[in-house]
Amino acid sequence: MDGSFILELSINLGTVVFLVDVVVFLWVGFFKLEQIEDALGNSKLNIDAKRLGSNLGLLGRQYRLSTTVSALLFTNMYVRKGLVDLDDVKNMPTRLKRWILIPFVTGGALLSFVFVLMLVAGKI
């Protein structure tokens, strides 16, 4: 196995992971978003995201999903600013948290993986 084969295999594997990640992200945006927003309750962040993103189609759903991700990742900051209720975040079912975090964490890991591949290939 030479280096070009491993690089090619890595690129193909990364492409497959990316496509699966996009499908999961779309699934969450279309079929889980309302459940996730309901679990967050009437937090200001949630209400504002619904108001701004409700009539924007897929882009609006992505915006609403991104605000829920940020509510989970930066809970303490949003609680201090009065944008999220800590009890709502703590009481959100674990299965819903996974539906939110997995596509975003996978996307971040994939981006890092592509960056390392480009470094190894000498493209950066």
Rank of each mutant, 00 (worst) to 15 (best):
I47H: 04
G122W: 05
L40P: 00
Y63M: 04
M118D: 11
L101P: 02
F30K: 06
L40D: 01
F25Y: 08
G60Q: 02
T68P: 00
A121E: 12
N42E: 14
I102C: 03
E34P: 00
T75Y: 06
S10F: 13
T15W: 04
V28H: 00
G14Q: 05
G57M: 03
L110V: 06
T94P: 01
L86R: 14
M77N: 08
M118I: 02
G57K: 02
G41E: 07
L40S: 02
V84F: 07
L7E: 11
D48Q: 15
A39I: 03
G122V: 05
E34A: 08
G107R: 06
W99E: 03
I36C: 01
Q62I: 11
F5Q: 11
M77F: 11
L117E: 09
N42K: 13
L119F: 13
L52D: 10
D2G: 15
L26G: 03
L45G: 05
G57C: 02
T106Y: 07
G57D: 02
L96V: 08
G107C: 05
V69P: 00
F18P: 00
M118H: 10
D38M: 04
K50I: 07
R64Y: 01
M118E: 11
R61M: 06
I100T: 04
G82W: 04
I100A: 03
V28N: 00
Q35W: 05
I124N: 10
D88F: 11
W99H: 06
V28A: 03
F104T: 06
T75H: 08
Q62R: 03
F18Q: 01
L65P: 00
P93E: 10
K81V: 03
L56H: 08
G82P: 07
S112H: 09
S4I: 14
T67W: 04
P103C: 03
G29D: 01
L110W: 10
G122L: 05
F115L: 15
V89C: 08
L110F: 10
E34N: 13
R64M: 07
K81E: 12
N46L: 05
V17F: 15
S112L: 15
V79Q: 07
S112R: 10
D85Y: 04
L19Y: 08
V24Q: 08
R95D: 14
I124H: 09
P93K: 11
W99V: 00
L40K: 00
L117A: 09
V84S: 04
S70D: 13
T106M: 15
R95P: 00
I100F: 03
I6W: 15
L110H: 09
V23A: 15
G53I: 01
T68H: 08
T106L: 15
I6M: 12
L52H: 07
F30M: 06
L72H: 07
V116M: 12
L52T: 09
L101W: 07
L58F: 14
L111Y: 12
D21R: 07
F113M: 10
L7R: 13
L7Y: 12
V79F: 09
V120H: 07
K81H: 06
L58D: 00
L72M: 15
N12T: 02
T75N: 12
F5I: 13
F5H: 11
V120N: 07
L72R: 06
K44W: 14
T67M: 14
R98D: 05
V20F: 14
L58S: 04
L19D: 04
D48G: 02
